[in-house]
Amino acid sequence: MSEAALGPTSGAARSLDLRRRPRRVERIAEGAIVAVALLSIVAVALILVFVGKEALPVLFSAVVHEEVTPLAMVMPRAVNGHAMYLWQPVSDVPKYNIVPLFLGSLKVTIVALLFAVPVSVAAAVYCAEYAPRRVREILKPAIELMAGVPSVVAGFFALVVLATWVQSVFGTEHRLNAIVAGLGLAFATCPVIFSVSEDALRSVPQSYRTAALALGSTPTQALLRVILPAAVPGIGAGVMLGFGRAIGETLIVVLASGNAALVDLNLGHSTRTVTATIAQELGEVVVGSAHYHVLFALGALLFLVTFVVNILTERALHRSRQSLTGSKR
């Protein structure tokens, strides 16, 4: 290796630093590693740019505005004297009101979380606090397997089997509805909330428990008043991740929700979500039409929602780690 290849180093430092300098091939490889690492940033930027690019004509294109304006996408339309929110993109006068779609997404997500949060947080408490080792060794891999079930399979089950059960139990008007889709979604959300919550509970330092017990509290008191509160930011992060997963999930809702864009709060009625709308309509739409751009706008809004949720989740996790290790106080 030539002296020149060593690079600019001061004489004193060189005499102390006996490490061999990388060869040129190595430096190229190292440069490539950094470049590839930057790809993830590029990917996020590209998603923003290319989904945004097709979505922006909804705001700025005069051609699109002949068919739909941003205001018309959220404001009701007067039909026979009634204010109606209509999503009818393929009628004679296309109507692109996105209120029923977001309402639909919220409905199924809330059903999913109402079921998934209590069940998976409680299961996480059991797994972290009570479960004997042998039970835990079955429970955790099983839930990992559950997370690995493809959503199209879960959606198919909801469509064929769960829908029949729900109808016979709740006597719902439509066979496919928000409850079926929500419960199907819960199948996909439970493992997410469980893993993050269980992690949060386990990362509460053992000293918290010993201190509480030494002060005379019972194990239950220690759990309810010390350990659970300390794990709350982590559990909250899990719930937010579950929310992001549920609102962005496509295949389960497209198969199990019935896909009628209604504006009502009846969970037994057929429901159309944002994701299902994109999935069902983008394949048949003319590229560059108003409908095409509106579908991309839906995707961009969805991306923004999950982006914000992700950042909040990261913050919450970061803060809980900091407060648990005491690095701040």
């Binding site: 993830s40 496509t250 999935a279 999950t306 949720v309 989740t313």
Partner: peptide
Amino acid sequence: RVVRVSIANLAGVPSIVFGLFGLGF
């Protein structure tokens, strides 16, 4: 840190948005 945040965000982007991205890009 930015790489990490990007990875976390990629993990949270709804899969249907990846479909839109794939089509658009």
